[in-house]
Design a protein around this nucleic acid. Structure first.
Length: 428
RNA sequence: GGAGGGGUGGCAGAGUGGUUGAUCGCGUCGGUUUCGAAAACCGAAAUGUCCGCAAGGGCAUCGGGGGUUCGAAUCCCCCCCCCUCCGCCA
């Protein structure tokens, strides 16, 4: 376990700390439980004695009580005092156990998931592995422009967004606004009609607890927009957050799985620490649209589901005729809660780069443990569920690829046929 | 935002301080019966956690968290959710 954490550049010493605390906790917990047990027995004997006293004022204390208190109490008042003292001792023992448990929980919240064995070990993003490439990069008889120079007159009004909210908040007019809407509809229709996902409409503001369930908090607090303390809600960074918590606390029958949900939401990210990097146009923004795929399933089926889910995302790109590659992230680069992750990168001819348009992760039981999502098999055995999710897809990066790859010498943009009915034509 | 009602085991629904982890019903599962089934009858059945090789046992949990008490599903406080009415509003 330490070795596998080490592949994520996490110091394995935390494992020793947790194990040590756990041993302490078990001892403390057992001691506290035993004291509680004795106290419960004594209290149970006390009630009937009170009843007997009413009929016979000198009724002797029951043997049980005498044994547990070490001596026969003279009267109920004395017994109460003795029991009170026992209770104090018990409470102290319980507090000691709780304190240790809290230390353990605090440590564990900052421990990432363990990578699956299949995840390539690596030291940095340079060690990610290209698993496949699909399509071919378009050839141009001219130098292709980056997306922010395209769609003259109805393009990327970043200044307007900036005026309203600050940089990184896109404002689209006309064609791009319509394209955005077309993409969202296309994504949702494909996943619901052909891939068996149930469309969901979800809250965009959530509680702290909800972020904790899917693993964004406490670790990524600085990435989150948050309302003031009148409500103290967080703006979702992805639909993964509300979708993962949809079944929090539930025990699902195996037969009810897999649960496949998809949802369109805007995504809000502060991108703290990323300032100045790839910020031209809509490469990296604080608010963007995304259709998310999310699956709850059994531990037995989760790895197969991961492939299926990734294929669902890839299908979108294939229908849109966008060249892409599937990158398998190495241990150093997978997300905090992920055990294995594929990034789908689209080719953007204008900026001449591969851009991440989707990230498809399997979380094993990491999120399920936090959100308390469990599954029950035929023999009524309860286990933690497995969760997965992936973008299907994020709009800005998809839009960039469509514009930059589809641009013509005359400045027009040819859209893929699959989008024509959604956009209302093949030319942007 | 204001006023009121409510949150109990898969569902429904009792239970207002002392063998209540919790009545009854429905549903579920096992059994008896049957050629098979239905009905009837009998029985089983929550989750977490700790100790134990196991059998088994302890502890916790009646929306969540505190408190009162020797003792809380039952009393008090805070929070969350649902329902009804009023106000405000896209």
């Amino acid at each position: 376990m330490k070795q596998r954490l080490a592949t994520r550049n996490v110091d394995g010493a935390v494992v020793d700390d947790v194990l040590k605390l756990d041993a302490q906790w078990r001892a403390a917990k057992t001691a506290a439980d035993e004291q509680q047990g004795a106290l419960n027995k004594a209290n149970k004997a006390f009630g009937p004695w009170m009843g007997a006293r009413k009929k016979n004022p000198v009724a002797p204390a029951p043997a049980e009580l005498t044994t547990l208190l070490g001596a026969a109490p003279a009267d109920p008042e004395a017994a109460k005092a003795a029991l009170g003292k026992l209770g104090e001792k018990q409470a102290e023992a319980a507090r000691a156990a709780d304190a240790i448990e809290q230390q353990i929980d605090a440590l564990l919240l900052y421990v990432p998931n363990l990578p699956l064995a299949a995840t390539p070990v690596g030291k940095s993003e340079a060690d990610n592995v290209v698993r496949k490439e699909w399509g071919s990069k378009p050839a141009f008889a001219f130098t292709p422009k980056p997306h922010w120079e395209l769609v003259a007159g109805q393009g990327f009004d970043m200044e307007i967004g900036g005026r309203i909210s600050g940089s990184g908040f896109p404002f689209f007019r006309g064609k791009l606004a319509r394209l955005e809407r077309a993409l969202i509809s296309f994504f949702l229709d494909l996943h619901t009609r052909e891939h068996g996902y149930t469309e969901c409409w979800v809250p965009f503001l959530v509680r702290e607890e909800t972020l904790r369930n899917s693993g964004q908090l406490p670790k990524f607090f600085d990435e989150m927009y948050r309302t003031d303390d009148r409500d103290d809600l967080f703006l979702i960074p992805t639909a993964e957050v509300p979708l993962t918590s949809a079944h929090a606390g539930e025990i699902l029958d195996d037969a009810a799985t897999p649960i496949r949900y998809c949802a369109f939401t805007p995504c809000f990210r502060r991108e703290a620490g990323a300032a100045g990097k790839d910020t031209r146009g809509i490469l990296r923004v604080h608010q963007f649209s995304k259709v998310e795929l999310m699956v709850v399933t059994t531990p037995e089926n989760s790895e197969a589901e991961h492939e299926t889910l990734t294929r669902c995302a890839e299908t979108v790109l294939e229908r849109l005729e966008i060249p892409y590659r599937r990158l398998e992230l190495c241990t150093a680069d997978i997300g905090f809660g992920a055990a294995r992750c594929y990034d789908l990168e689209v080719w953007a001819a204008g900026v001449g780069k591969w851009l991440e348009a989707s990230s498809c992760s399997i979380f094993t039981d990491y999120q399920a443990r936090r959100a308390k999502i469990r599954v029950r098999d035929k023999d009524k055995k309860v286990r933690l569920a497995h969760t997965l999710n992936g973008s299907g897809l994020a709009c800005p990066r998809t839009m960039i690829a469509l514009l930059e790859n589809g641009q013509q010498a005359d400045g027009r943009v040819k859209l893929p046929a699959a989008l024509a009915t959604y956009y209302g034509g093949e030319w942007l």
